[in-house]
Write a protein that binds this DNA or RNA. Structure first.
Lengths: 229, 229
DNA sequence: ACCGACTATTGACAGTCTGTCAATAGTCGA
DNA sequence: TCGACTATTGACAGACTGTCAATAGTCGGT
């Protein structure tokens, strides 16, 4: 059955193939429960080659995480609604769409379960959270100066933890429906934006938004720019 | 410096001592980065004895998690304030006090980093989250029927994820101060209780509280007796 | 067509870790 | 003091990761 060719292959192809197998397996089971032997045989190669390409098992896992965090980045909805509520609803929908595409694998990887605290993986996850949070907040019309502050980043990552938790409840535990998760995330996001983020409670977010490019489309897969090599 | 006695010890004492060392080490480094040899030598014993008492490394880790989740059982604030805001503030303070006592170790353990998806550990964490959430909600005066629903439990665990994330930002990343975390958690808790939890948005929580007797403890206090017959 | 350089790929080796088990050595009661 | 009980050890087996020299495809030049 193995469509995998056993013979010599171009490095890029071979690398890609091994990576695909690793993504599959790391999506099914946590880091420690997947051996390099297993990945290698799944890819039809030897452990030695795997190490040749990725150096170490963690190196391979880092690439897996990178792939899972880069790929699902979809374009934000461009046509920006005017009301804050509508904008929040749109953002949450975007978030859930993004995740639901990759489902369990995303939950497994984004939860950072299994690796322990590999600094590289952790940095990747934090970076991804930062980017997501920043996009959300800027789209919601939060003051850019606020968005860049340490405090906002901390709050953003905290919200990200909430989102991951709720999504996990939806996808893995099944205790919440997608609609319920949407409701929860939307309401809390509203609280965060209007009350928490800008130090003083009553200083609301302006209801007019700084528009980014206006194309009336919903979600389009966008090729994401390269990360640090 | 080793105050540890090398000689024969009562099983309970020995067990306790090994567990203490394990708690210390698992607090510093993630699961995979701590070897049983290390724990054993730190306790002044042999790996064999460690396995004799805890069976497997995961078994030991389960006990560590259990300990970390049981120990911080602090009494809830007794005199219940009448205003909802005051009650919320009290609960969040209780939450943060509980955590700050154990600091980094709690963050490391509660995050479930490192273990992968050990079913026992996962069950413990979920159970602990459930208990914490239930206590919070009942204290806040949410309808008990609502508290017991699957949906409420999902929401509660999601809020728990938020809390852990924010606490992590405070203790480990340092991007938020304790006060900021308090503010964030309190406001969101208010949103959850008043808006999200009881299906209809405007049905507010009664401002009088149903007093629970609230035995302040227990995440399955499993009496760990002999392993090998 | 052949040859030689290049390199993708392999297989064996070394080290570390977990888990098992019979043997050893404290400790306490008769 | 002796003997039973059991806490504790040390050695063994298996699995896994990471390294490296050797092997074998592949391609360009003659």
């Amino acid at each position: 059955m193995s469509t995998v060719t056993r013979a010599r292959l171009e490095p890029d192809k071979r690398r890609e193939q091994i990576l695909a197998c690793a993504i599959e397996l790391f999506g099914e089971r946590p880091y420690a429960a997947v051996s390099t032997t297993e990945i290698a045989t799944a890819a039809g190669v030897t452990r030695g080659l795997l190490h040749h390409y990725f150096g170490t098992k963690r190196g391979l896992y880092v690439e897996v995480v990178r792939e899972m965090l880069i790929v699902p980045r979809m374009a934000l909805p461009d046509g920006v609604p005017d009301s804050l509520e509508a904008r929040i609803a749109g953002c949450v929908t975007w978030l859930l769409d993004m995740v639901s595409e990759h489902g369990r694998t995303f939950v497994a990887v984004a939860g950072a379960e299994g690796v322990g605290d590999d600094p590289e993986v952790e940095a990747l996850l934090i970076e991804a959270d930062d980017i997501a949070a920043r996009r959300l907040l800027t789209l919601l019309g939060v003051d850019p100066a606020v968005v860049d502050s340490d405090r906002a980043r901390g709050i953003g990552r905290s919200y990200g933890a909430l989102a991951k938790g709720a999504i996990r409840e939806w996808i893995r535990e099944g205790s919440l429906t997608r609609d319920e998760v949407h409701d929860l995330l939307a309401r809390i996001l509203r609280t965060v934006v209007t009350e928490v983020l800008n130090g003083t409670p009553t200083t609301a977010v302006p209801d007019t938004v700084t528009p980014n490019t206006a194309a009336p489309n919903t979600v389009t897969p966008k090729t994401q720019s390269e990360k640090t090599p």
